[in-house]
Nucleic acid binder design. Structure first.
Lengths: 261, 261
DNA sequence: GACCGACGTCCGATATTTCGGACAAACGGT
DNA sequence: ACCGTTTGTCCGAAATATCGGACGTCGGTC
């Protein structure tokens, strides 16, 4: 079984059960992205609230278009190569992301640790680019997965421009509770932000993962607003000197990425 | 105008003009991928043979799902972030590609030239991964674009396992004609293949581009069949010593990527 | 060897989505 | 200021894609 506590979600039905094929397909793709694993067609149908016969029909169409691929010989499907092609076209079409790819690849290679490029999506934090370092202990990608802002180092930079009130209104209260149940005090979060702004970087340790430290530097627009971050994800026992090198590296990269300067 | 000689293609109508939304969406995405540029909705509708009102309806749905994005303030659309997320999921789910990403990134960084990972799709050659080198003279990605096999260095490795007859049947005759009109003699192609097999790499110069040299090494399955290639794209005037270093680098990477050994 | 559940396909009916065309607004050239 | 072109929205009609359910297979279990 692949069941590993993934949040299942029914597609929101309206009056009747009937829906457009395209809406079914969107639900299907989102479901695969949430699970992040090849999934059997019948399971997708059940979990998205799509009739089985409809799902088979759509999957056949999508497999033919290479949007999906049949996997493993068992009846599971997952994303196909067409998604990679379209995704690459997207990356190349966004100026900041195209430049960030170069930076992230470069610092991940030279420093040898996992580097990421992150931004906000609504009131959530999002990894846009992820380049595994040499040790590569994180296997499955986190790209496109939404995470509460307070769980991350970068989050403390990305809401940089807001005051305490705005932040309270912007970040859902539940998001201050970590996966292990601990709660981040608001004052603490605000203090992290303040320090980050003066120092030009953030460091957090053992936030979502007990043995991980995150280092992040802000990419700012001409108005000084933090529009993205570039960061390292390293073991918590990394030496202070090594971390200082990484911080300098991040600051330099973030500076190069900051548009209009 | 963005018109730059892109092959337009009508969607193949059957009896009536009516088609499923999902088929129209597939045509839409393929069209954007072919053009590789933000495109106005009315133009997409015309070029894919989709009614204008239908296309507006679909685009709205897709923009909401982040599959597409409105660009530039003018009425153009292009791929959205969701495609990148799904594409990343695909890359991570395919073992060989995940490993190839590491290799390609590494050799592109250390050597400083553009490195690629390529394979076949039907009877065409395809770039799957592309890591720009430091000089980065090629701007727009070629990822997912099909190219005739004889136009490429890698192509000479990828049909490695066929004899002269099989190749004649496999590669469309037109594909031996280069973009500038020159024609590659079949003997010449076969001779390139033979040399490649003994040497363990291919070098081609001035094939599709007068000033470019390609160096490629084969990734082979346990049966010895070439299932992919890893290659460098460099200026034709690169010194022979530098090229030898690259060839050794490619061979080592290709060896590491060859499964089951 | 009989039973059970899951898989994948097929088919007819109808609720719905696609389509064509009309319309107003915005644009741009003269 | 005029007029031709393009953009985006809206609407009713009908062609058809979605849906539910039935059916044959396959594989595992008791």
């Amino acid at each position: 079984m692949t069941g590993d506590g993934v949040a299942e979600k029914q597609v929101t039905e309206k009056s009747t059960g009937r829906a457009r094929g395209i809406d079914r397909v969107i639900a299907l793709m989102e479901h695969l992205h949430d699970r992040r694993a090849p999934t059997r067609i019948a399971d997708i149908a059940r979990d998205t609230g799509t009739p089985r016969s409809t799902m088979y029909e759509l999957v056949n169409t999508l497999v033919e278009a290479r949007w999906l691929e049949l996997r493993d010989g068992d009846g599971t499907v997952y994303f196909g190569p067409a998604m990679h092609y379209y995704g690459s076209d997207y990356l190349d079409s966004v100026d900041l992301i195209r430049k960030a790819r170069v930076e992230v690849a470069h610092i991940a290679e030279t420093v040898g640790e996992t580097a990421q490029f992150c931004t906000l999506d609504g009131d959530k934090y999002l990894v846009v680019l992820n380049e595994p370092g040499r040790r590569m202990f994180r296997i499955s990608s986190e790209i496109g997965i939404k995470v509460p802002i307070p769980w991350t180092a970068s989050g403390r930079l990305l809401v940089d421009h807001m005051d305490a009130d705005e932040i309270r209104r912007f970040i859902p209260s539940d998001d201050f509770t970590l996966p292990d149940g601990r709660r981040i005090a608001e004052d603490e979060f605000l203090e992290d932000m303040r320090r980050a702004r003066t120092q030009g970087y953030v460091r957090t340790t053992a936030l979502v993962d007990r043995f991980t430290t995150c280092l992040a530097a802000p990419v700012r627009d001409p108005a000084g607003r933090c529009i993205a971050t570039i960061c390292f994800v390293v073991p918590a026992d990394t030496t202070e000197e090594a971390q200082q090198v990484m911080i300098d590296t991040l600051k330099a990269s973030a500076e190069r990425l900051s548009p209009g300067r």
